[in-house]
């Protein structure tokens, strides 16, 4: 199987001189096609930082990053923006929706900047919204949604472009347990069916069952990487 995401000897330091803190220290990681991986670990252990590096939002101080076999470290800012648009779906720790776009438009805008044909974009936005149970909210502005609904819109948005790699930072933090379970199940199913890959940061141990692998991060190092047996 080919790897969607490869991280080699990734190191990340913030600050200068004596105030320098090492957030990530020599992380090696490989996510294969069709794999759904959970990252867990204590607060401040560098999970969000790792995810930002994986999503080409942050340049690591050290190491090599391959997305879909392409070396991201050598891309210009413009190229990495295009790479994000077409290959990566982001779900941030909080929803980060655009306040002046209705739910439906949040998704259609992604279709537009990715130059999807209008009909196809509409159809896909519809599917994604239905998948997350948001059809009845599609004309709403983010300000008029509940926290959970906002998070689901963010998930639908990340899923809009059929990204090869989905990066989710605690996507279920503001969802109730059953809704969270449902959403992650949908994500897992999509990853399997469409042969994509996903990395999800979570503290919710109940969700580990749905993942192929759970990586525990501690003080910027991968503490353990356990394989779960998933019954399909």
């Amino acid at each position: 199987m080919t790897a969607k995401l490869v991280m080699e000897n990734i190191g990340m330091k913030f600050g200068e001189g004596s105030g320098k803190t090492t957030v990530l220290d020599d992380v090696n990681l490989s996510i294969d096609t069709g794999e759904f991986v959970a990252i867990t670990g204590p607060s401040g252990s560098g999970k969000s930082t790792l995810l930002s590096i994986a999503g080409a939002l942050l340049t690591p101080t050290r190491g090599r990053l391959l997305l879909n076999g392409e070396n991201v470290s050598t891309l210009s800012p413009k190229e990495s923006t295009a790479m994000r648009l077409h290959n990566i779906g982001f779900i941030f720790q909080s929803a980060h929706l655009i306040p002046y776009l209705r739910v439906e438009d949040q998704l259609l805008y992604i279709g537009k900047i990715a130059k999807l044909p209008k009909q196809q974009a509409k159809k896909r936005a519809h599917e994604r919204l239905a998948m997350l149970g948001l059809t009845h909210r599609k004309r709403h502005y983010p300000a008029n949604l509940s926290g959970g609904e906002r998070q689901r819109v963010a998930i639908a948005r990340a899923w809009m472009n059929d990204p090869e790699l989905l990066l989710a930072d605690e996507p279920t933090a503001s969802l109730d347990a059953s809704r969270g379970q449902e959403v992650v199940e949908t994500l897992a199913k999509q990853v399997k069916e469409q042969q994509k890959a996903a990395v999800m940061v979570t503290h919710d141990t109940r969700l580990f069952d749905l993942c192929d692998r759970v990586i525990t991060l501690s003080d910027g190092k991968i503490e353990q990487s356990m394989k779960e047996m998933v019954s399909t």
Binding site: L57, T81, A82, L85, F90, F92, H96, I98, I113, N161
Partner: peptide
């Protein structure tokens, strides 16, 4: 912040 989000989800500067 909004412009940052838009950039993160793949909108380029010229857009």
């Amino acid at each position: 912040t909004q412009f940052g989000i838009l950039k993160a989800i793949g909108a380029n500067v010229s857009e």
